[in-house]
């Protein structure tokens, strides 16, 4: 039973992380219909930025709380700036190009960013400082659920609620929903669509950066390649939930996280990644609209 609960929590933790990344995919897809292939790299850059900031601060002897907060804030700011810049450079000029052009551009961007980090930093795995201490009150449950799992779950939950409030109740959220529904119409009623797209990239990137920080401190090491797999898995989660749908991304992520956790826990861990890829292929073939997505009707 303990083992089951342990797997349950590790699955939820995984799912929470996937959700933080998947939201960026799904929001961008909802607004401009692009699979932002470079999104996984934004997450990786978030992890690297928090690594650099946290390590520098700890060398200069800052207290842990300040390190955590500053690393998180810096990661979010810089990742958002990367997301914003990438959109302006690689996607915006292709707004009216054939559908595959921005996707190819996104793939190029992803490869570019991976190698940029590889050259600017290192190709080795870097040990990530432990930012989340073991809480005393978690002591009795430590064999089932770690403190960092708890922090990840709580942080993700808080961010999800904040995002929901932003999208449901604020002016910018309304504009985002309008743009997602019909870009031309939104433009006609005076919404600055370019700005909404930028905001979407910024929010998505910020969330991915927080994900990067949390994973890095949970797992304890990072390298330039972590974005590829995490990106694909988060994309799988987004498609599973129905790409374009925000609650769908969260549900899809939790399902993916839990199934991965139970499958590796009870069956075998050799094929962990094969499993995610197969799931992706199967959903796209049999139910590309996902759990909460709308089926597309072709217009002739």
């Amino acid at each position: 039973m303990d083992y089951f609960v342990e797997l349950l929590f590790s699955g939820l933790t995984r799912g929470a992380i996937y959700a933080l990344i998947a939201l960026g995919y799904t929001m961008v897809y909802g607004i401009i219909g692009l699979i932002n292939f470079a999104h996984g790299e934004i997450y990786m850059i978030g992890a690297f930025t928090s690594f650099v900031v946290a390590t520098v601060l700890s060398i200069y002897g800052f207290p842990l709380l300040a390190i955590v907060v500053l690393a998180g804030v810096c990661a979010a700011i810089w990742s958002s700036a990367y997301g914003y810049t990438i959109e302006k450079l690689a996607y915006k000029p292709l707004r009216h190009a054939p559908r595959l052009s921005p996707l190819i551009s996104a793939i190029g961007m992803s490869i570019f960013l991976q190698n940029y980090v590889l050259l600017a930093q290192t190709s080795d795995f870097l040990p990530f400082p432990e930012l989340i201490p073991d809480f005393a009150f978690m002591e009795p449950y430590a064999h089932i659920v770690g403190s960092s799992d708890l922090v990840i779950l709580v942080t993700t939950a808080v961010l999800m609620v904040a995002l929901t409030i932003l999208i449901k109740f604020t002016r910018i959220g309304k504009a985002m929903r309008a743009t997602a529904q019909d870009r031309t119409m939104a433009m006609l009623v005076g919404i600055n669509v370019d700005r909404i797209i930028s905001v979407t990239f910024i929010i998505g990137s910020g969330l991915a950066a927080v994900g990067g920080l949390l994973v890095a401190s949970h797992i304890g090491q990072i390298n330039f390649y972590i974005g590829f797999l995490a990106g694909i898995k988060a994309f799988t989660a987004a498609v599973l939930g129905g790409i374009g749908s925000i609650p769908g991304a969260v549900i899809g992520s939790l399902i993916l996280g839990l199934t991965e956790s139970f499958a590796t826990g009870y069956i075998s861990s050799d094929y962990e990644d094969v499993f995610a890829f197969s799931l992706l292929v199967l959903i796209l073939i049999f139910k590309p609209s996902g759990i909460l997505g709308k089926a597309e009707t072709k217009k002739v």
């Binding site: 559908r99 890829f277 197969s278 590309p288």
Partner: peptide
Amino acid sequence: VLRLRGDYLAIVTLGFGEIIRL
């Protein structure tokens, strides 16, 4: 997979490539 839309086809083939390698 060939009846899938262009961008989905791209991702599925990517997934397939990785599955073979894994």
